[in-house]
Design a protein around this nucleic acid. Sequence first.
DNA 1: ACTGGGACCTGCCAGC
DNA 2: TGCTGGCAGGTCCCAG
Length: 271
Amino acid sequence: MPELPEVETTVRGLVPVLEGHRLVQVEARRADLRRAFPPDLRQRLTGARVTSLGRRAKYGLIATDRGDTLIFHLGMSGKWRIDPDALGAHDHFLLETDEGRRLALNDARRFGSLDLVRSDEVPAYEPFVKMGPEPLSDAFSAPYLLGALDGRSAPIKAMLLDQRIVAGLGNIYVCEALHMAGIAPTRAAGRISLMRLERLVEAVKIVLAAAIEAGGSTLRDYARPDGELGYFSKQWRVYGREGEACACGTAIRRRVDSGRSTFFCPRCQRS
DNA sequence: ACTGGGACCTGCCAGC
DNA sequence: TGCTGGCAGGTCCCAG
């Protein structure tokens, strides 16, 4: 579920519950997700007030007045449940605020992560160190991409999924952006012209912004008890649509590389 | 250094 | 109904 737009939507949904509020209960119901939780997680968070929330790539950031930042990653199946009616087997980490609002970090596959770092050390947080620019920032531009992809023979799809090139894209939005830009996913990344990279950068920004917009429009649904953060409307043009007609009328194709599905239109997306 | 492939873990769904 | 195989939105590690 969670690529950049879903994490952004999640963070926005957490803001009204957490921002400005004190954490009165903190409970880890297991010791790890993909990595071990910090051993002093509970001690450092209990009693702390949340000062701000943010996002870097697919990571959510929750800063406290004690100078700590809780960094979460939702992996493939993670989500925050708000005021859950009952806890389930996959509710791994719990928070309760001074207002009595309760949050459960639920992650069936446990590919997610939870870390706590000093806020001034966030830029040095290991996953962030070699990360590329935010795709919605001005730093993610065609000239930047041209330089970053120079000499690379790997397919453009693989390069867009590489968080060191650009941080926050996943399988869905890469497929969608390549389709919008009319570029074949298998095209060698280093052999794409500046003009076509302009279209690609533009497509990435449009696709992500539209997904965030769609997520934002469903935010009100999260306000109800037992709401789950992270869902968004599925308005994909190619992803998950193998065999269906592209806007051009051609059947959308699916290919699999090392277990990963790529959806594309063989007519609209030329190499 | 770059590239491609597989591992990690659980749940769900189509097909038999 | 019950089993099996295939599939899933992300990283990380390894071998060539």
